[in-house]
Design a protein around this nucleic acid. Structure first.
Lengths: 227, 227
DNA sequence: AGTGAAACGGAACGGAGACTCCGCTTGGCT
DNA sequence: AGCCAAGCGGAGTCTCCGTTCCGTTTCACT
């Protein structure tokens, strides 16, 4: 069947799938059909809306309805509800990592605070998947952590934050903001800003050290496993 | 039917029910039969254990089994799962209020920090009902808030905490600790202490005010309504 | 235009869990 | 001792929700 005399473009060729299937497994994968790709985007957008509004307990049927597709479509694209949530988490983590990279460009010691303010704002704008944000997607979480570690080190070099602060402290700080966002978003959507003010005041240099020992990295890793 | 010639002690008399039925409605109520009172205590204890271990998603059947009673017994004592949780919340809030009163006796400005450390420790020891702690039982929550307000005022008078801190800030602070307890209890049950260290550092007097406006009392009240 | 693999919709399934019902038991009173 | 309201256990009901199945439709390639 040599139609045009050459077949350099086999039907199974792999070309820039990252745009269409950001979560594709490492095996050979076909690009999605146009309608399928469109529905995948709709589903993710709808899931974000629905979970933002109702929390992760919202039913997948609600998501499918909001996306204007049937259950079958949803489940062909995301094999379980968890996979759907993971995809949302993936997006938020990706954005968070990007923000950490941008803040790192400052290198004047203000990157950490800049990052904390921006990433908190982003999370406040995407509250739906917050409960799962730091309990999944091990690799991205670790990437984020190491970037945050760099931001922290820089801030400490420039004497912008207390010397006894650790990376795990900063992680807890972010979880703390997440908790406030979750608790207050319905009636005081910007309350986290005030809370972050207090936290930032708490991490500034001080003559007296924090009274208790920090959490170890290993302990936080354990949360990822059986979160 | 005058059996003993007098009936000063009618079967419906109301005597010191608070011990047996702390949540009894304001209407006329009989004391519980001995076995019923015993089972009520067992149920509350079991519910605490089960929810502490598995979270509020644990099934009521698990609670009944842990208490060694049947479903019927559980539901005669607590008409819904929510009522059972409310009873637990009630206990924790009661203890919290008591702690606030004790701390207030200091009146040397250290009461607030003392209260925050003790109540956090107590909550960390009873994590099961934390998600509902501040969303139910309006009256007790308001009592707690006003006591906290007094602790704060005293601390500010003695220049132990920053002058621009409000009662709502302290409330958010407690919610924040709650979030950290919930997130870390499985692998780092004392992590909240370190986090509280940071928060306490953040509320100490400072030359620069917090950047954002505090949440209003009214906003926090709204959370109680439709939590 | 024709074809078939991929995708679609939504009804049906299965399991989990909150809650109810009812026949049996027991504490507390006379 | 005897009565009976109160209490008890736990099987059964009902609803909700994640997931699957399958007949129909649509894309994409020839």
């Amino acid at each position: 069947m040599p139609s045009s005399g050459c077949s350099p473009v086999a039907p199974w060729r792999v070309i820039s799938l990252s745009e269409v299937r950001p979560l594709a497994d490492p095996e050979v994968a076909r690009p999605l059909r146009k309608d399928a790709a469109r529905n995948r985007k709709r589903l993710l957008a709808a899931a974000g809306d629905v979970f933002d509004a109702q929390g992760l307990d919202a039913s997948v049927a609600d998501v499918a309805r909001a996306a204007g597709v049937g259950m079958g479509t949803l489940y062909r694209r995301f094999p379980t509800k968890e996979a759907l949530i993971d995809a949302l988490v993936h997006e938020v983590l990706e954005a968070t990592i990007e923000m950490a990279r941008e803040s790192a460009n400052r290198a004047d010691g203000t990157g950490l605070e800049d990052f904390l303010r921006k990433s908190s704002a982003f999370q406040a704008a995407h509250p739906g998947c917050l409960p799962k944000l730091w309990n999944t997607d091990h690799d991205m979480v670790k990437t984020a952590r190491s970037l945050i570690g760099e931001l922290l080190a820089d801030a400490q070099r420039q004497h912008k934050v207390r010397h006894d602060l650790t990376g795990t402290d900063v992680t807890l700080l972010m979880w703390s903001v997440r908790g406030i966002v979750e608790s207050t978003r319905s009636v005081a959507p910007t309350a986290w800003q005030r809370h972050l003010d207090v936290l930032l005041a708490g991490i500034r240099p001080s003559s007296e050290d924090l009274a208790h020992r920090p959490v170890t990295r290993k302990q936080l890793d354990a949360i990822l496993e059986h979160g």
